[in-house]
Protein backbone atom coordinates (compact mmCIF):
# COMPACT_ATOMS: atom_id res chain seq x y z
CA UNK A 1 0.00 0.00 0.00
CA UNK A 2 1.01 3.54 -0.69
CA UNK A 3 -0.29 6.28 1.58
CA UNK A 4 -0.15 10.03 1.88
CA UNK A 5 0.22 11.18 5.46
CA UNK A 6 -0.50 14.66 6.69
CA UNK A 7 1.10 14.82 10.12
CA UNK A 8 1.00 17.52 12.77
CA UNK A 9 4.58 18.70 13.34
CA UNK A 10 5.37 20.98 16.26
CA UNK A 11 8.93 21.52 17.51
CA UNK A 12 8.04 22.07 21.16
CA UNK A 13 5.31 23.23 23.48
CA UNK A 14 5.80 26.91 22.61
CA UNK A 15 6.24 26.59 18.85
CA UNK A 16 3.41 26.92 16.33
CA UNK A 17 2.60 23.63 14.65
CA UNK A 18 1.43 22.80 11.16
CA UNK A 19 0.54 19.80 9.05
CA UNK A 20 3.40 18.33 6.97
CA UNK A 21 2.83 15.93 4.09
CA UNK A 22 4.77 12.66 3.67
CA UNK A 23 4.44 9.71 1.31
CA UNK A 24 4.96 6.17 2.62
CA UNK A 25 5.26 3.23 0.28
CA UNK A 26 5.40 -0.52 0.89
CA UNK A 27 2.92 -0.49 3.74
CA UNK A 28 1.60 -3.98 4.50
CA UNK A 29 -2.05 -4.37 5.53
CA UNK A 30 -0.79 -6.48 8.46
CA UNK A 31 1.25 -3.65 9.91
CA UNK A 32 -0.11 -1.86 12.94
CA UNK A 33 -0.61 1.86 12.60
CA UNK A 34 2.43 2.50 14.78
CA UNK A 35 4.60 0.16 12.68
CA UNK A 36 3.55 2.18 9.66
CA UNK A 37 4.76 5.32 11.46
CA UNK A 38 8.00 3.48 12.39
CA UNK A 39 8.53 2.92 8.66
CA UNK A 40 8.07 6.62 8.01
CA UNK A 41 10.46 7.50 10.83
CA UNK A 42 13.17 5.16 9.54
CA UNK A 43 13.01 6.93 6.20
CA UNK A 44 13.11 10.33 7.86
CA UNK A 45 16.14 9.35 9.96
CA UNK A 46 17.96 8.03 6.88
CA UNK A 47 17.30 11.35 5.18
CA UNK A 48 18.66 13.15 8.23
CA UNK A 49 15.31 14.64 9.14
CA UNK A 50 13.68 14.81 12.56
CA UNK A 51 11.47 11.72 13.11
CA UNK A 52 7.82 12.19 14.07
CA UNK A 53 7.42 12.02 17.84
CA UNK A 54 4.48 9.92 19.05
CA UNK A 55 3.64 8.18 22.32
CA UNK A 56 3.59 4.39 22.62
CA UNK A 57 4.65 1.75 25.09
CA UNK A 58 3.02 -1.68 25.32
CA UNK A 59 1.72 -1.81 21.74
CA UNK A 60 -0.82 -4.35 22.90
CA UNK A 61 -3.70 -2.11 23.86
CA UNK A 62 -3.25 -2.11 27.63
CA UNK A 63 -1.05 0.79 28.67
CA UNK A 64 -2.93 3.74 27.21
CA UNK A 65 0.17 5.51 25.91
CA UNK A 66 -0.62 5.60 22.21
CA UNK A 67 -2.74 8.57 21.30
CA UNK A 68 -3.38 9.70 17.73
CA UNK A 69 -6.34 11.36 16.12
CA UNK A 70 -6.60 9.79 12.68
CA UNK A 71 -8.88 11.48 10.16
CA UNK A 72 -10.66 13.21 13.02
CA UNK A 73 -11.22 10.03 15.06
CA UNK A 74 -9.40 9.43 18.34
CA UNK A 75 -7.54 6.10 17.84
CA UNK A 76 -8.78 5.99 14.24
CA UNK A 77 -11.75 4.31 12.59
CA UNK A 78 -11.90 1.10 14.66
CA UNK A 79 -12.91 0.88 18.29
CA UNK A 80 -9.48 0.03 19.59
CA UNK A 81 -6.21 1.69 20.54
CA UNK A 82 -3.96 3.17 17.86
CA UNK A 83 -1.40 0.41 18.49
CA UNK A 84 -4.03 -2.26 17.85
CA UNK A 85 -5.29 -0.56 14.70
CA UNK A 86 -4.05 -2.27 11.57
CA UNK A 87 -3.41 -0.87 8.13
CA UNK A 88 -6.03 -3.20 6.64
CA UNK A 89 -8.55 -0.67 7.96
CA UNK A 90 -7.30 1.68 5.23
CA UNK A 91 -7.00 1.51 1.47
CA UNK A 92 -4.13 1.88 -0.93
CA UNK A 93 -3.86 5.54 -1.97
CA UNK A 94 -5.63 6.91 1.12
CA UNK A 95 -4.67 10.26 2.59
CA UNK A 96 -4.53 10.16 6.39
CA UNK A 97 -4.59 13.18 8.67
CA UNK A 98 -2.71 12.45 11.90
CA UNK A 99 -3.07 14.88 14.78
CA UNK A 100 -2.40 14.93 18.52
CA UNK A 101 -5.13 14.88 21.22
CA UNK A 102 -6.44 18.42 21.41
CA UNK A 103 -7.53 19.88 24.73
CA UNK A 104 -6.17 22.78 26.75
CA UNK A 105 -5.56 20.38 29.64
CA UNK A 106 -3.41 18.21 27.32
CA UNK A 107 -0.80 20.63 25.92
CA UNK A 108 1.31 19.38 22.99
CA UNK A 109 4.92 18.66 23.99
CA UNK A 110 6.20 17.78 20.55
CA UNK A 111 4.53 16.70 17.30
CA UNK A 112 1.94 14.10 18.32
CA UNK A 113 2.93 13.81 21.98
CA UNK A 114 0.77 15.55 24.56
CA UNK A 115 1.22 16.00 28.29
CA UNK A 116 -1.42 13.90 30.04
CA UNK A 117 -0.17 14.41 33.59
CA UNK A 118 -3.50 16.11 34.35
CA UNK A 119 -4.91 12.56 34.50
CA UNK A 120 -2.25 11.57 37.03
CA UNK A 121 -3.24 14.48 39.24
CA UNK A 122 -6.91 13.45 39.03
CA UNK A 123 -5.87 9.97 40.20
CA UNK A 124 -3.72 11.45 42.95
CA UNK A 125 -6.75 13.39 44.18
CA UNK A 126 -8.68 10.24 45.05
CA UNK A 127 -8.20 7.35 42.65
CA UNK A 128 -6.81 5.05 45.32
CA UNK A 129 -7.91 3.17 48.42
CA UNK A 130 -6.46 3.58 51.87
CA UNK A 131 -5.36 0.11 52.87
CA UNK A 132 -2.89 -1.10 55.42
CA UNK A 133 0.18 -2.34 53.58
CA UNK A 134 1.53 -5.81 54.10
CA UNK A 135 0.87 -9.15 52.50
CA UNK A 136 -2.15 -9.57 50.26
CA UNK A 137 -5.33 -10.17 52.27
CA UNK A 138 -7.21 -13.44 52.04
CA UNK A 139 -9.35 -13.17 48.90
CA UNK A 140 -12.58 -14.21 50.61
CA UNK A 141 -12.20 -11.91 53.59
CA UNK A 142 -14.20 -9.17 51.86
CA UNK A 143 -17.11 -10.60 49.88
CA UNK A 144 -18.04 -8.68 46.74
CA UNK A 145 -21.38 -9.46 45.08
CA UNK A 146 -20.90 -10.65 41.51
CA UNK A 147 -22.81 -7.77 39.85
CA UNK A 148 -20.69 -5.24 41.76
CA UNK A 149 -17.51 -7.05 40.83
CA UNK A 150 -18.56 -7.00 37.17
CA UNK A 151 -19.40 -3.31 37.31
CA UNK A 152 -16.10 -2.48 39.00
CA UNK A 153 -14.24 -4.52 36.43
CA UNK A 154 -16.00 -2.85 33.53
CA UNK A 155 -14.79 0.52 34.84
CA UNK A 156 -11.37 -0.80 35.78
CA UNK A 157 -10.80 -1.48 32.09
CA UNK A 158 -10.10 2.22 31.50
CA UNK A 159 -6.46 2.54 30.46
CA UNK A 160 -6.29 6.31 30.89
CA UNK A 161 -5.52 6.96 27.25
CA UNK A 162 -7.48 10.20 27.04
CA UNK A 163 -9.32 9.43 23.81
CA UNK A 164 -12.50 10.51 25.57
CA UNK A 165 -11.05 13.99 26.14
CA UNK A 166 -9.73 14.14 22.58
CA UNK A 167 -13.11 13.25 21.12
CA UNK A 168 -15.24 15.47 23.35
CA UNK A 169 -16.26 18.79 21.78
CA UNK A 170 -15.82 20.32 25.26
CA UNK A 171 -12.50 18.65 26.05
CA UNK A 172 -14.17 17.02 29.06
CA UNK A 173 -12.56 14.31 31.17
CA UNK A 174 -15.88 13.12 32.56
CA UNK A 175 -15.69 9.61 31.10
CA UNK A 176 -12.18 8.98 32.43
CA UNK A 177 -12.96 10.41 35.85
CA UNK A 178 -16.25 8.54 36.09
CA UNK A 179 -14.57 5.25 35.17
CA UNK A 180 -12.02 5.75 37.95
CA UNK A 181 -14.59 6.91 40.51
CA UNK A 182 -17.09 4.14 39.79
CA UNK A 183 -14.42 1.44 39.72
CA UNK A 184 -13.57 2.04 43.38
CA UNK A 185 -16.89 3.39 44.63
CA UNK A 186 -18.82 0.18 43.91
CA UNK A 187 -16.34 -1.96 45.87
CA UNK A 188 -16.26 -2.40 49.66
CA UNK A 189 -12.53 -1.66 49.52
CA UNK A 190 -13.34 1.78 48.16
CA UNK A 191 -16.07 2.55 50.67
CA UNK A 192 -14.06 4.52 53.29
CA UNK A 193 -13.27 7.28 50.77
CA UNK A 194 -16.49 6.97 48.79
CA UNK A 195 -17.48 10.63 49.30
CA UNK A 196 -14.10 12.34 49.36
CA UNK A 197 -13.01 10.39 46.29
CA UNK A 198 -15.69 11.70 43.99
CA UNK A 199 -15.60 15.24 45.38
CA UNK A 200 -11.82 15.54 45.18
CA UNK A 201 -11.44 13.91 41.77
CA UNK A 202 -14.15 16.08 40.23
CA UNK A 203 -12.61 19.17 41.85
CA UNK A 204 -9.21 18.26 40.42
CA UNK A 205 -10.77 17.62 37.00
CA UNK A 206 -12.23 21.15 37.07
CA UNK A 207 -8.94 22.55 38.34
CA UNK A 208 -7.06 21.07 35.37
CA UNK A 209 -9.26 23.00 32.93
CA UNK A 210 -11.24 20.17 31.39
CA UNK A 211 -14.71 21.06 30.10
CA UNK A 212 -18.04 19.66 31.23
CA UNK A 213 -20.43 17.06 29.90
CA UNK A 214 -23.14 18.11 27.44
CA UNK A 215 -24.15 14.54 26.61
CA UNK A 216 -22.67 14.71 23.12
CA UNK A 217 -21.65 11.07 23.59
CA UNK A 218 -18.45 11.32 21.54
CA UNK A 219 -16.32 10.03 24.44
CA UNK A 220 -18.08 6.70 24.77
CA UNK A 221 -17.94 6.23 20.99
CA UNK A 222 -14.19 6.83 20.95
CA UNK A 223 -13.31 4.85 24.09
CA UNK A 224 -11.28 1.77 23.10
CA UNK A 225 -12.41 0.00 26.28
CA UNK A 226 -16.13 0.58 25.89
CA UNK A 227 -16.63 2.62 29.07
CA UNK A 228 -20.34 3.50 28.72
CA UNK A 229 -21.80 7.00 28.76
CA UNK A 230 -23.97 6.00 31.73
CA UNK A 231 -20.76 5.97 33.83
CA UNK A 232 -21.01 9.74 33.81
CA UNK A 233 -24.58 9.53 35.08
CA UNK A 234 -23.43 7.25 37.92
CA UNK A 235 -20.63 9.66 38.81
CA UNK A 236 -23.08 12.59 38.87
CA UNK A 237 -25.24 10.59 41.26
CA UNK A 238 -22.25 9.78 43.47
CA UNK A 239 -21.21 13.44 43.46
CA UNK A 240 -24.65 14.70 44.48
CA UNK A 241 -24.86 12.05 47.20
CA UNK A 242 -21.41 12.92 48.53
CA UNK A 243 -22.20 16.63 48.52
CA UNK A 244 -25.29 16.04 50.63
CA UNK A 245 -23.48 13.75 53.06
CA UNK A 246 -20.41 15.89 53.53
CA UNK A 247 -22.45 19.04 54.01
CA UNK A 248 -24.46 17.36 56.78
CA UNK A 249 -21.41 16.74 58.94
Amino acid sequence: MKLTLRVWRQKNADADGAMSTYEVDGVSPDMSFLEMLDTLNEELILKGEDPVAFDHDCREGICGACSLVINGDAHGPERTTTCQLHMRSFRDGDTLDIEPWRASAFPVIKDLVVDRSAFDRIIQAGGYITAPTGSAPEAHATPVPKPDADLAFEHAECIGCGACVAACPNGAAMLFTSAKVNHLNVLPQGAPERETRVLDMVAQMDEEGFGGCTLAGECATACPKGIPLTSITSMNKEWLRATRKVAKR
Binding site: N71, D97, S104, N170, G209
Partner: peptide, 11 residues
Protein backbone atom coordinates in the same frame (compact mmCIF):
# COMPACT_ATOMS: atom_id res chain seq x y z
CA UNK B 1 -16.30 24.15 27.64
CA UNK B 2 -15.04 26.48 24.91
CA UNK B 3 -11.87 27.28 26.86
CA UNK B 4 -11.18 23.56 27.35
CA UNK B 5 -10.98 22.97 23.58
CA UNK B 6 -9.37 26.06 22.07
CA UNK B 7 -7.70 24.55 19.00
CA UNK B 8 -9.77 22.67 16.48
CA UNK B 9 -8.78 19.54 14.61
CA UNK B 10 -7.52 20.18 11.10
CA UNK B 11 -9.51 17.18 9.90
Amino acid sequence: DLRARPSKYVH
